[in-house]
Computed example of a mutant assay.
Amino acid sequence: MREATVRCANPQGLHRIAYTEWGDPHNPDVLVCVHGLTRNGRDFDDLAEALSSDYRVICPDVVGRGRSEWLPAKSAYGLPQYVSDMMVLLARSRVESVHWLGTSMGGLIGMLIASQPDSPITRLVLNDVGPVITAASLRRIGDYVGRAPVFPDFAAAETYIRAVSAPFGPLTDEQWRRMTQTSVRAGAGGGFEMRYDPGIGDVFRSAPVLNDVDLWPIYDAIRCPTLALRGESSDLLTPETHREMGRRGPQAKLMEVPGVGHAPMLMDSAQIALVRDFLLSA
């Protein structure tokens, strides 16, 4: 694993986003893995290691998360900024095309890029996200994003992460521990704090969420082969939307992960195999 940063622009100035990279740095086959709303690129350590013999795997920390810098204006946190940053990162990769795996928010970023003419994404994995984002799931996310306390010790941080991340499904004690290690950092006044900008939550609470978000026109414009993974108990990607994704647009290959809500973490061998088999089936 290698760590690096790349400089990007925002309406108020410049910021750096961090990323980890796995595999041969000269491999022309690149897989970009992008995380969910409050997560970071280290979520993909197991998958990236498993696929590093086939791909150069790039796992960014979206701005405001992980090791990436925070935006001065919290209102700038949103898909336009994220897409802009990811295009800078793709330019840094120095390849004409990439495969893309996106969990939740990372999938929305991938959808937006893949829907464009002359898109660099030639194969797309959407992990528990689709063209309809339910209002209920958005309200649930808004209830906790940016409201995490400062934890007195690491054990308290792990207890919190296990609680808010319960929909991820059954993980081993070692996996929960590793996820906590990459999710928190030492606080300035002692203890531990989450490794993301609390201001991300401001966008969710700036106005009441009354309706589902409809992105079908974007999904319908996607032309590359697509895999749509769904957690069996997901409240963000409904069974109805998932089935429709197999009929419309890229007519995604549909797969469901049992015993998981939002979203499969792609840490165990069975989930990794679903992704590997699709990506390497071309």
Rank of each mutant, 00 (worst) to 15 (best):
P60L: 00
R56E: 12
G102N: 06
Y55F: 15
S93Y: 03
A50N: 13
G78P: 07
E69P: 11
V57A: 04
P80M: 05
M111L: 13
R42W: 01
S84A: 15
G106K: 00
I113T: 01
Y77K: 00
D46N: 11
R42E: 00
P80F: 09
M105K: 08
E69V: 07
W70H: 05
Y77T: 14
A73V: 02
V62P: 00
D85V: 02
R92T: 11
D61Y: 05
Y77V: 14
E69D: 10
L90D: 12
F44V: 05
Y82I: 00
G106P: 08
D61K: 05
D46G: 09
S68N: 07
Q81I: 08
A73Q: 14
R42S: 05
A73G: 09
V63H: 03
S97M: 13
S68A: 09
S84K: 05
P80L: 02
I109T: 09
R67D: 03
S53H: 13
V88I: 02
G64I: 02
L90M: 14
S52A: 15
D54V: 10
L79E: 08
P80K: 01
M111K: 03
D43Y: 02
A91W: 04
T103F: 03
L101D: 13
P60D: 00
R65M: 05
P72S: 08
R67Q: 13
A50C: 13
L79H: 10
W70Q: 05
L101T: 10
L90Q: 12
S97F: 11
E96L: 11
G64R: 02
E69G: 00
T103D: 10
S53N: 10
Y82Q: 07
E69F: 00
Y77F: 02
Y77E: 05
V95R: 15
D61F: 01
V95M: 14
M111R: 04
G41T: 02
Q81D: 04
G110A: 06
E96F: 06
S84N: 12
S52D: 05
E96R: 14
G64C: 02
E96S: 15
L47E: 11
E49I: 00
A76R: 12
G41S: 07
R65E: 04
L47P: 04
R94E: 01
L71F: 03
S97L: 11
W100K: 00
R67S: 12
M105F: 01
F44Q: 02
L71G: 06
M86A: 01
A91S: 13
G110M: 08
S93P: 10
L51G: 14
D85C: 06
M105Y: 03
G106R: 00
A50K: 14
L90C: 09
G107I: 13
M87T: 00
L108F: 07
G102V: 15
S52T: 15
C59H: 07
R65W: 07
V62W: 02
D43H: 04
P72D: 01
V57Y: 05
L79R: 04
